[in-house]
Write a protein that binds this DNA or RNA. Structure first.
Length: 640
DNA sequence: ATGGGTCCT
DNA sequence: AGGACCC
């Protein structure tokens, strides 16, 4: 039965040809035309196709490779930094054509169904591309080739359109799209790749490895069964050594063998999930969508070595690794705004058992603190890691691999790209229409906003203040510990009820009274930091006191969560640094990222607008007035 | 094996 | 925390 058009998918699987080796050749043109191998430690991890044609496969020892081919040019590829950067460029090109699911630096699946459908809107589009095609005979009337597919320069004149099924039509148009994608990648990044086009991720991946390098293979529907039937079960992505061994025990070698085993039998030996997966896979079925997995869930650095038997040696290794980790975490923060919560240490000891041992701990906030030098932060990492090692290894050990990394990333206020660079953000406010801020965090950001609305609408009408820029609100913890506050992030445009007093300090006191009167039990509200002390001062204070007045003159709240408060200060330090005498002069109280302007009764227009939750641009006269005092803040906009 | 990653249990 | 899998 034919698939309904709504079920048809066209998936392309891309695989950059010998990625590391190609990268080295691209960055060092004198290598072009020569056999090249990329090394990590004592291994040649990959070779270009020239080297392969001269007898050097990938994953051989350097000694062996040199013996086979003395002319082999070896390049060290232990530092993945350039590969990561190039991979990102390539993935960005792919991303223009559909959702991309990366797997490793050099591979990815792209769902190009939408592209295909768009081209079929106006009937069968003109085709012009070269591809290997399995099942060619069914759509052309020409003879086909089952080993690797028929190589054809496709154009519409070769096709017997009336004979082609909807699925195959889509796959052929998809191949046209893929041909253009490969050209785009090569033109924009220099990289050549191989590609498979099929109805699902598994088949596309299998097809992509059929013809290399720099070739594409299309697997038409009629050829699926006979293509996969003779393949070893191990070829199914997801079937590794262990599963292969169990299948062999069941008498299964090929996909054809696998088809004869019942789901029950498979599930018995391998668990229901893998059982069902294999049952589908050997029939060419893979219903899993192409999913963008987002930024990495862990960032780690590691090294391997021959002997590391003392803590001093381990620390030496960590001192090399830690700066790399810090650098990568910083880059990640610039890109994503998130922060890792856990530090993991993983190692392998010498011996027949090659398994990794791993431990994790809370990642010390100092590791990410912008006020500490990179060296200081690296030293913190080394210290924590070495303590972890000492605790878990005892005194006699022999490490061969050491890995340190960060996981458990959480969104922060700066995870929102719109507020990541508050400097440009604030500058942009005056000139551009207000950007809708997206609340992306899966946590309680939405709930917080909702409860905030409840709070602001429940409060009596009256003069109101509004947050001008990025703000942080203190979320009341719970009733059980009065005077306890957890610090979280608020949002641009959140509104706060302030006092009608023109005296800032009274305003804050009123706010505190509101909180005390019970509003805070269920609602987030504003808190008040002033930026008169550096993080270090606060940190010292926090360390010396269990509960501390935040700051002298304007502090209202106490905290019973010094650790969380400290975390908050570290997280937001870069924002807090924005504090400038200018904003003081402007009559704006910048309180640790909170930009408040107190509205007196005279500003009824704005007060009303806030009540109605309108967007209110600052009036020209207001702006002029303020600009005459200072020019740092360009807009006063209230949202919702 | 290398220097990374993923997801599941 | 460890295992199986992927490149």
């Amino acid at each position: 039965m034919a698939d309904s058009p709504i079920d048809i998918r066209v998936i392309a699987h891309f695989d950059i040809d010998c990625f590391y080796a190609q990268s080295e050749v691209l960055r060092c043109p004198s290598l072009r035309g020569r056999p090249v191998g990329v090394t990590q430690k004592f291994l040649v991890v990959t070779t270009n196709y020239i080297a392969r044609s001269l007898g050097v496969p990938k994953m051989v020892s350097i000694d062996e490779a040199k013996k086979v081919l003395p002319a082999l040019v070896l390049v060290n590829g232990e530092d993945l930094t350039p590969y990561r950067a190039e991979s990102k460029q390539i993935m960005a090109v792919l991303g223009r054509y559909g959702v991309v699911q990366r797997s490793g630096l050099d591979e990815g699946a792209v769902d190009i169904t939408a592209q295909v459908k768009a081209r079929l809107q106006c009937g069968f589009p003109a085709l012009s591309f070269s591809s290997h095609i399995l099942g060619w005979e069914a759509v052309s009337g020409e003879p086909g080739n089952d080993s690797g597919g028929t190589f054809v320069n496709v154009d519409s004149t070769k096709l017997e359109l009336e004979k082609i099924s909807g699925v195959d039509t889509a796959l052929l148009v998809g191949s046209q799209v893929v041909s253009e994608m490969r050209s785009a990648i090569e033109k924009e990044t220099g990289f050549q790749c191989s590609c498979g086009v099929a109805q699902n991720k598994m088949l596309a991946k299998l097809a992509s490895s059929l013809n290399k390098p720099s070739k594409q293979t299309c697997l038409l529907s009629g050829a699926v069964e006979r293509f996969i039937a003779p393949l070893p079960a191990r070829k199914i992505p997801g079937v590794g050594r262990q599963t292969e061994a169990i299948l062999l025990d069941l008498g299964v070698q090929t996909i054809t063998d696998l088809k004869k085993v019942s789901v029950c039998q498979l599930s018995e030996r391998l668990g229901a999930r893998i059982g069902q997966f294999l049952y589908d896979a050997c029939r060419g079925r893979d219903y899993t969508p192409v999913l963008d997995k987002g930024p990495p869930k862990s960032i780690t650095v590691e090294d391997s070595f021959r002997n590391c038997t003392t803590l001093q040696q381990a620390e030496g290794i960590l001192r090399v690794l830690a700066p790399d980790l810090i650098k990568r975490l910083d880059e990640d923060r610039v890109e994503t705004g998130r922060r890792p919560k856990s530090l993991t240490l993983k190692w392998r000891v010498q011996g027949p058992k090659w398994n990794f041992i791993s431990v994790s701990t809370d990642l010390p906030v100092e590791l990410l603190s912008p006020s500490l030098s990179k060296e200081q932060r690296a030293a913190v990492a080394v210290e924590v890691a070495s303590r972890l090692l000492l605790r878990n290894l005892g005194h006699s050990f022999h490490l061969v691999v050491l890995n340190i990394g960060a996981t458990n990333f959480v969104e922060t206020s700066t995870s929102d790209p719109a507020v990541r660079d508050i400097r440009s953000f604030l500058q942009a406010q005056g000139n551009s229409p207000r950007k809708e801020l997206k609340v992306t965090s899966k946590n309680d950001a939405r709930a917080r906003r909702e409860s905030f609305k409840t709070m602001t609408s429940a409060l009596p009408a009256g003069p109101t203040g509004a947050v001008l820029g990025l703000n942080f609100s203190a979320v009341a913890d719970s009733q059980k510990t009065p005077d306890t506050h957890i610090f979280g992030s608020g949002h641009v445009g959140d509104e706060y009820q302030l006092s009608n007093s023109s005296d800032e300090e009274d305003g804050w006191r009123d706010l505190a009274d509101q909180l005390k009167s019970g509003v805070r039990a269920s609602c987030p509200t504003a808190t008040n930091f002033t930026q008169t002390q550096s993080y270090k001062d606060v940190s010292d204070q926090l360390q010396s006191q269990q509960s501390t007045d935040l700051l002298h003159s304007k502090s209202i709240f106490k905290t019973s969560h010094p650790a969380k408060l400290k975390q908050f200060f570290v997280e937001n330090e870069d924002v807090m640094k924005l504090e400038s005498p200018d904003s003081q002069r402007a009559g704006v109280t910048n309180t640790g990222g909170l930009h408040f302007r107190t509205q007196t009764a005279g500003s009824s227009r704005i007060a009303n607008s806030i009540a109605k939750r309108e967007v209110v641009p600052e009036s020209t006269s207001q702006k002029k007035k303020r600009k005459s005092r200072n020019g740092t803040l360009d807009a006063f906009v209230i949202r919702k």
